[in-house]
């Protein structure tokens, strides 16, 4: 590293530069800023509108219920940041929850079953990732096919029935248990989200994920094995979908091939609400957490408000549109569109 020549002798244009203040930072992270505002808004709204919303049991309940969403959304953030998408996570969740119940009924030790299930999700992810990264088929197509095929396999194996898991097994603690007053699934989800945050922001891998979404060819030319990186994000989303399936089966005490219908849409909604760009190159793990919690709070709050649960998709959808619209309008100055 030594190159003496000067590319320009012009003095630094420091005069034109304002120091970056809090406001600049807020706007530079426009996506996160607006979802934070939105999150606070829905929390305040339901706190005022319903009696039970802001009680400790209900908050813990929300955390328990949103943990599958959080885990998968963390991985989906990476997928979407590469410019891809994974539509198959709901189907993987269903297949895994069903297989989980079947294997446990067959008497296999549940710890082994959990490991097998995670491997199964990872393998499905790897297969899809192979078609996306190495064969160049659009992720939307590959995972749409995956969504259909994997759900079909789940239905075929169970015949459409829900398979019970004995509540006496300690396995169910994964979904129902408490640890230090906090639901076990929430602890698992927190751990996953923290790991994903570090992976995304502090490692070369995370850097390449962002880089691939911005300019995959540039990252390749920098000597990075972009195909392997791309394949791996699908392995992660498959594995996380499997983990979510295990936790869900444990919570419900059964495995069902009908679980997780539309789950992929909730996950994508959470990620996009959080400010991650569907075009790739821009992703935020903090935003995703807020997005997932917002989706969860809306579902919970509407039920507490004694409104029809059928309102949930309508409200969620509307809020997604409004949030993204706000991002485009208010925070446009921050993220320059090309």
């Amino acid at each position: 590293m030594s190159t003496p020549a000067q590319i320009s002798s012009v003095p630094t244009p420091a005069t034109r530069l304002r120091p970056r203040g809090l406001k600049d930072r807020f706007f530079a992270n426009g996506g996160v800023g607006s979802i934070a505002v939105f999150f606070v808004f829905v929390v305040v709204l339901f706190s005022v509108a319903t009696e039970d919303f802001l009680s400790v049991p209900n908050i813990l309940n929300i955390l328990r219920q949103s943990s599958p969403l959080l885990m998968v959304a963390a991985a989906m953030t990476l997928v979407i940041t590469t410019g891809g998408i994974d539509l198959s996570v709901g189907s993987i969740l269903a297949l895994v929850s069903a297989l989980c119940a079947i294997l446990i009924q067959a008497g296999i030790p549940w710890a082994l079953v959990v490991l097998l299930m995670l491997a199964c999700g990872g393998l499905i992810g790897a297969l899809q990732g192979f078609f996306v990264a190495y064969e160049g088929i659009p992720a939307f197509i590959v995972t749409l096919a995956g969504l259909s095929v994997i759900r079909g396999v789940a239905l075929l194996t169970t015949g459409g029935y829900s398979i019970p898991i004995p509540a006496t097994l300690s396995f169910v603690e994964l979904g129902r248990g408490w640890f230090l007053g906090v639901p076990v699934p929430a602890i698992i989800a927190t751990g996953i989200v923290a790991l994903a945050f570090v992976l995304f922001t502090q490692t070369p891998f995370g850097r390449y994920v962002t880089g691939i979404g911005a300019n995959a060819e540039a990252v390749r030319r920098a000597g990075v094995n972009t195909k392997a990186v791309t394949l791996f994000v699908y392995v992660l989303s498959g594995t996380m979908a499997a983990l979510a399936g295990v936790v869900l089966a444990a919570r419900l005490g059964s495995g069902s091939s009908n679980a997780g219908q539309g789950f992929e849409l909730d996950v994508i909604a959470a990620v996009v609400l959080g400010g991650t760009s569907l075009f790739g190159g821009r992703g935020t793990m903090v935003g995703t957490v807020l997005g997932a919690l917002t989706v969860a709070v809306i579902g919970n709050g509407l039920i507490l408000a004694h409104l029809s649960p059928f309102l949930t998709p309508i409200v969620t959808g509307t809020i997604i549109l409004v949030a993204i619209w706000m991002n485009f309008r208010i925070f446009r100055g921050a993220a320059r569109k090309r």
Binding site: P204, R207, T210, G211, G213, A214, N215, E217, A218, V219, R221, A222, G223, V224, G281, R282, R338
Partner: peptide, 19 residues
């Protein structure tokens, strides 16, 4: 061959980041 959404330092060191 730059990544638009990566900072200046990140682009300079793309593929050989100090670790």
């Amino acid at each position: 061959s730059l990544c638009d959404t990566v900072d200046v330092a990140g682009n300079l060191f793309l593929g050989r980041e100090p670790r």
